[in-house]
Design a protein around this nucleic acid. Structure first.
Lengths: 159, 159
DNA sequence: CTAGCTGCAAATATTTTGCATCGGA
DNA sequence: TCCGATGCAAAATATTTGCAGCTAG
């Protein structure tokens, strides 16, 4: 999977926390114990935890933290490119077009655009070790970002 | 995108509805006006409609249909492989590992497994026309199916 | 007939928001 | 000090479920 963010893994937790602090400073986001603990929790976990699961884990260290802080913090961390959201947020959408294609999902307005592979373009290849995991029923490839319409709208505001 | 279901698009709506009926019969799912109308709606739409949007559209033809029937029907249609769900269902999960990798998502238990590309394996390539849509922030590739643990559990029940 | 489907209403689950207070820079 | 972050409570949104009646096969 290609990501536009720098790869910050492979480093140990301390180094990642330092990088996280640096990023917060660069964006004038305040470094609070809640943020640090939430970041540590997600960075250490390999279980792709839900907001609820992060909340439960962080609570052991910070018993007074609230669930909505976890939601807000995960959202801001996602925006900062520090964590990745597996799946879309909230509302499910359906597609009856079963021909091979991908989707561009706008992280701002939620709009979903079809991307059909061009002539001679290769679709996704199955990983060789896929059978280790289970039986694949279908494949979901999303490119996520800001759609051109939303980008224009933002530019217009800043004018 | 590779799908394990047969490609049923490119055909006109009538043909697709007939195929849908056949599939229902083969699974002893009843062919009701609600099901047909929901299928027609999703098959005709290019907007990746949400359950709510399908509900609004179908209501024009069947004013008495309920939202929960739409939810139930979309779920059974997804299970039958007739429609595709864009994104995961409900609960969001997070990952702080930003190294290139994909996910296997179990459609039964919801578990998320990491899939790291093997030596020499190519990750996803950016479509050539991606800039038409917007600025890509990240890429989400999910293989969805039934994980081996759930498959074993099902086998055990049937023994 | 009868098992599966539907509508209704109510319950859950998930995520978001307003507001007063707190605390990091 | 000051503005962003937090906790609390409540709201909004999305989805699921129990049940009684309906209907396709």
């Amino acid at each position: 999977m290609y990501l536009t963010q720098p790869v910050t893994n492979g480093k140990d937790l301390k180094a990642r926390v330092e990088e996280f602090k640096k990023l917060c400073r660069s964006r004038s986001l305040r470094i609070t114990s809640q943020r640090l603990e939430i970041f540590r929790t997600v960075a250490q976990s390999k279980a792709h935890p839900s907001a609820e699961a992060v909340f439960a884990a962080v609570r052991k260290k910070l018993p007074n933290i609230s669930l909505d802080t976890v939601y807000r913090t995960l959202a801001s961390m996602e925006e900062a490119g520090v964590v990745f959201r597996v799946g879309l947020s909230s509302k499910a959408r359906f597609d009856a077009d079963l021909t091979p294609h991908y989707h561009f999902v706008c992280m701002n307005c939620g709009e979903v655009y079809d991307i059909f592979p061009g002539e001679g373009e290769q679709p996704v290849l199955m990983p060789q070790n896929i059978n280790e995991f289970g039986e694949v029923k279908n494949v979901n490839l999303q490119f996520r970002g800001i759609c051109n319409r939303c980008r224009k709208a933002t530019e217009d505001i800043q004018k």
